[in-house]
Design a protein around this nucleic acid. Sequence first.
RNA 1: GGGCUCGUGGUGCAGCCUGGUUAGCACACUGGACUGUCAAUCCAGAGGUCGCGGGUUCAAGUCCCGUCGAGCCCGCCA
Length: 604
Amino acid sequence: MHAYRTHTCGELRAGDVGMPARLSGWVHRKRDHGNLLFVDLRDNYGLTQCVIAAGSAHFKTVESLRLETVVTVSGQVVARAPSAINPKLATGEIEIAVDEITVLSTAEPPPLQVNSEADFPEETRLRYRFLDLRREPLHQHILLRSRVIASIRRRMIAAGFTEFQTPILTSSSPEGARDYLVPSRLHPGKFYALPQAPQQFKQLLMVAGFDRYFQIAPCFRDEDGRADRSPGEFYQLDLEMSFVTQEDVFAALEPIMHGVFAEFRPEAAVTPAPFPRIPYDEALAKYGTDKPDLRNPLVIDDATEIFRGAGFAVFAAAIEQGALVRALRAPGAAAQPRSFFDKLNQWARDEGAPGLGYVTLAEGGARGPIAKFLDAPRLARLRQATGATDGDAVFFVADKRAAADKLAGKARVKLGEELGRVETNAFRFCWITDFPMYERDEETGKIDFSHNPFSMPQGGLEALETRDPLTIKAYQYDIVCNGVELSSGAIRNHRPDIMYKAFGIAGYSREHVEAHFGGMLNAFKYGAPPHGGSAPGIDRIVMLIAGVSNIREVIAFPMNQQAQDLMMGAPAPVPPERLRELHIRVVLPEGDRMVDSKTGNDRR
RNA sequence: GGGCUCGUGGUGCAGCCUGGUUAGCACACUGGACUGUCAAUCCAGAGGUCGCGGGUUCAAGUCCCGUCGAGCCCGCCA
């Protein structure tokens, strides 16, 4: 018999009754009846009830076992009496009659209870991550993550992609985030950067003629965390293809995304390919965001002209100042009580807006505080513009374009939820296309890239030479699911001449481009295929599939929001000799001090 | 860097608004009882710098100020 186990804790069934068996695992729970003792033994695969009676030589041992002790039990598989069958357990028809028990590893009382569904503080969960990972929800999420990645990998290979590895120690890349830096021992004063994404390497692999690249790629960005953004590192399904148009990239990725979501959430509705394509400008106008949640059926319409010259002084004045009026049809909301509208108005004020105008439609007319400013022709145009009919309400936001879009977008989300119109158990994908190539920095007034500077401008060199840069679109696209930005991607600029020009418009000299992106630029001078790709975030995909709202629920060993690993104690100081070796001298900020994070006491 | 919320035995919460006996409940822990439970049950016990510092007060877990920590958000993240 094997030293540790003949079966796993999730394996034995009624058909195994009468067999000898040996199981190893953790003591999940005990039920002590004095002369009869039940132990639920747990491993990765499940739970098996083990039973021992007072006559046994091992009874005292088992009775004294603490929860989470690791043991090996041997005995006979026995059938449970019909009344004692536990239908909640896969192994519920049997139990192990324990003859022998060996303690493999004792356990102190754990700081978080593995067998409990109780909430524990995030700090404790992170510090004792190995215990939290034993618990059912997190354990299952991590297994799900593995299966999702395996499925993605299988689908990518089946679609003709080749998997690569690219360097972790590299130089700074063109993404806009802060780099993690690694000092060089051999080159004093110089630093490696951890890749924010393998962007340049995958493009170089295209130049090298590999045609279709993918990687489950670690990406490192030194930016602050959010519930859906792990500080430090995250994973992307990074892919790149040669000799492709934007539509080719979409056609490659759509079946993979659809397939993975449909595979792991078979009960949910998943957008079939082709996913809707929504130009960036249209997304802002209709949804007030570049990452619309299409489970919400509400759309924003423009009502600027309807209010221009109307008697409502607040809007009319704003329109004269260049503001837009956005209208949001709320189907069936006319029946809502006054408090509903007051509550939304208060919500808008909390969002920093003056308020939220509205009318309700009934019997061919309109009611509400500003209804009197809309005469019959204007009302008819409003009904036409929004599709609103009797029984509906229409909400209004008036502000400069960006602010109006933003508030209308938030109101769309809020109203969709309040009215219960948001689809559940569905994954609604779309592509957001035609992102602007450039934008004007609000503070400096300077023109800069609005996204990846390596994207191909639509219209190519001619557009760069002849058009107002702010009107030029890029072959740049995002994939969005349920309001979550899963990835961005682009058809790349593979032409050095267009690249120099594109960077020139953003104020970067030829020398700057060569100094920073010389490796890739040089490669493009030796025959580069047109290419493009995308990089959906793995962690967010798993989050969506698992139905959780915090990214740490799908990462085995995440850092906290302050980018600390509480279990491993990272980041940590290093001995002076290590710093000397790296030619580093630490200059702490003024007034910095050591504080004991547990007690809050200064330790100066 | 900023905003909001939170911080009470190992853990989850109550107590705070309205200051006043030994800070209460549940889970875990320790001991005892119990031969069919499966969140076993019952009895008993131990366990608390109320994050930290200062202030107001006869009296502070409770009120005030500061500070530290955590989460969420803004900034940031193409």
